[in-house]
């Protein structure tokens, strides 16, 4: 299972590295979202500073939609999905590999977005341990959940419009939890940040488990 996962993750990441869709399209999109928030909200720095954690994670959610759609669009082209089904790889491994690739892409985007909020919103980064722990578990949760819903909608003609409707309400706890934890880390709230990390970790564990269990069935139907 782990070898299969590494194979699939390597394949997806190689496709991204060669096609440069992530670097040439998704990354600029993420930055544009940050700039648009600046336009929409009061460009008064203190307000943007307060809102920075929430805006950061909303931008991450949007990017995760694109990453998931991309992850399954490459399987839809040239009947690559059929090849994947007939490859004999463990479906759980395929799931973990695809989710890992999405997670790594998201992690890179989050690094970029962090620079973005430092530059555009003058955010002073504090509480590095909590920031990183939150980002890690939230990213794993988003990637696992996104991949599971991605295959659920894969192969449908309406998948581009259906996917956001399915995923966004489901990842609402991630948005809430990650935003609150970051607020604590950045010194904007006196809540217990690690409580939120626990919730995010539960979310991640639940979706990784469900994905490992259900991916095979869904892949057959896709």
């Amino acid at each position: 299972m782990w070898r299969d996962a590494a194979l699939i993750a390597g394949k997806d990441l190689r496709i991204e590295a060669r096609s440069r869709v992530a670097t040439n399209q998704v990354a600029p999109f993420a930055i544009i979202v940050l700039v648009l928030f600046g336009f929409a909200l009061e460009p008064d720095r203190s307000f943007l500073q307060t809102a920075a954690p929430g805006l950061f994670w909303v931008a991450v959610l949007f990017c995760s939609l694109l990453a998931v759609q991309r992850s399954f669009a490459v399987e839809a082209a040239d009947a690559a999905g059929d090849g994947l089904r007939m490859s004999g790889l463990d479906p759980a491994g395929i799931f973990l590999g695809k989710a890992a690739a999405v997670a790594l892409e998201l992690a890179a985007l989050e690094a970029l977005l962090t620079i973005g909020i430092v530059v555009f919103y003058s955010t002073a980064l504090t509480g590095a341990a909590l920031l990183l722990a939150t980002a890690a578990v939230a990213t794993i949760g988003l990637a696992a959940c996104g991949t599971l819903y991605g295959v659920l909608a894969a192969g449908l003609r309406v998948r581009e419009t259906l996917l956001p409707l399915l995923i966004l309400p489901v990842v609402a706890p991630v948005l809430i939890g990650a935003t609150r934890a970051w607020e604590v880390a950045l010194g904007q709230s006196l809540d217990d940040g690690w409580k939120w990390v626990t919730l995010l970790a539960v979310f991640a564990v639940v979706y990784v488990t469900l994905g490992v269990l259900a991916f095979g069935t869904l892949l057959e139907e896709a």
Binding site: R157, L162, L165, L166, L168
Partner: peptide, 17 residues
Amino acid sequence: LLCALFVGYLALRRTGG
């Protein structure tokens, strides 16, 4: 949130195939 989740569910049920 539940309402939104189940609207998505109904949309999924109507996808044909």
